[in-house]
């Protein structure tokens, strides 16, 4: 097993612990997006606790902010704060580790949580880089359910208008949202075509939970000049925990003790 995949499964174990302790969070989406976050933070992006205040660090926005749980374990692992404290206090009384990204947590760029905001903010960040001739890149992670928000399409237009090749969106396309499949609720089947028709460079990761495929996708994005790129990551909601995979009830389900033990066992088996 390669180092990134190993890390993504170790972080899955952290997520399961955090979710079980807090009886909160969005476990299904955490497990679909964790490989994307792992690859971005441990392979692609130039951001760490030492350069976070520098003007030229890569920017990251989790537009699908309800998966803050996954972001917090990644930031903790990256050294922005004590990861175990995040796991122990997530969603608890007076904790800064609330259910959405916020700037009280070291490593978070801007407060988010309402869907459909991240891409426009990312456009502003990428524009600022162009204005100042800075080389940092801006990465925005969106959910496929979130793509029903119309504000995304305003941002997609502007990103192309200003040829923001320093902006890379990722859609965590797991095909499920709180009420059911995206096909039942609002289809995400034509997302690649939508981005392409808005003039974006579209890169599909057939297995969006495969770190090697994601690494390749982000290399292609960085190499593309003159337009923004999107990685459409075809993921599995609940990936890595057998009974959660592709089950809408695990959008934000709470595990029984027995379920928790089974989830840990599933992950430990992969790590072994």
């Amino acid at each position: 097993m390669d180092a990134l995949t190993r890390k993504s499964y170790e972080l899955r174990r952290d997520i399961i612990e955090m979710i079980h302790k807090s009886e909160a969070g969005h476990v299904g989406g955490d497990l679909s997006v964790i490989d994307i976050l792992t690859v971005l933070y441990f392979d692609v992006m130039n951001v760490n606790p030492d350069n976070f205040k520098d003007e030229n660090h890569d920017r990251f926005l989790l537009s699908k902010g309800h998966c803050a749980d996954a972001l917090f374990v990644v930031l903790g692992e990256k050294g922005f704060f004590d990861k175990q404290r995040a796991i122990d206090t997530f969603s608890q009384y007076q904790s800064e580790f609330i259910g959405h990204p916020n700037t009280d947590v070291n490593g978070v760029e801007i407060n988010s949580g309402s869907l459909g905001h991240g891409l426009a903010v990312g456009v502003g960040m990428a524009l600022a880089a162009k204005m100042d001739d800075r080389t940092y890149r801006t990465y925005v992670v969106l959910g496929d359910g979130e793509m029903a928000e119309g504000s995304n399409y305003e941002a997609m237009m502007a990103a192309r208008q200003y040829r923001l090749d320093n902006l890379c969106a990722t859609v965590d396309l797991n095909g499920l949202q709180i009420s059911g499949t995206t096909d039942q609720v609002m289809s995400s089947a034509l997302l690649a075509e939508k981005f392409a028709s808005f003039g974006w460079n579209v890169i599909e990761a057939e297995d969006g939970n495969n770190c090697a495929q994601l690494v390749e996708a982000y290399k292609k994005a960085a190499a593309c000049k003159g337009k923004p790129s999107v990685v459409i990551a075809h993921t599995v909601k609940g990936k890595g925990v057998s009974f959660m995979e592709n089950e809408k009830k695990w959008h934000h389900g709470v595990m029984t003790q027995e379920e928790y033990e089974r989830a840990v066992k599933d992950i430990e088996e992969v790590l072994a």
Partner: peptide, 26 residues
């Protein structure tokens, strides 16, 4: 012109992009 951004008739985008610019020091 290098300090001016036109977003078209898109007020949500106007404010979101403004916030992103400001978060990077503008």
């Amino acid at each position: 012109p290098g300090q001016f951004v036109e977003v078209g008739i898109a007020e949500q985008n106007l404010v979101g992009i403004s916030a992103g610019l400001a978060a990077c020091g503008k």
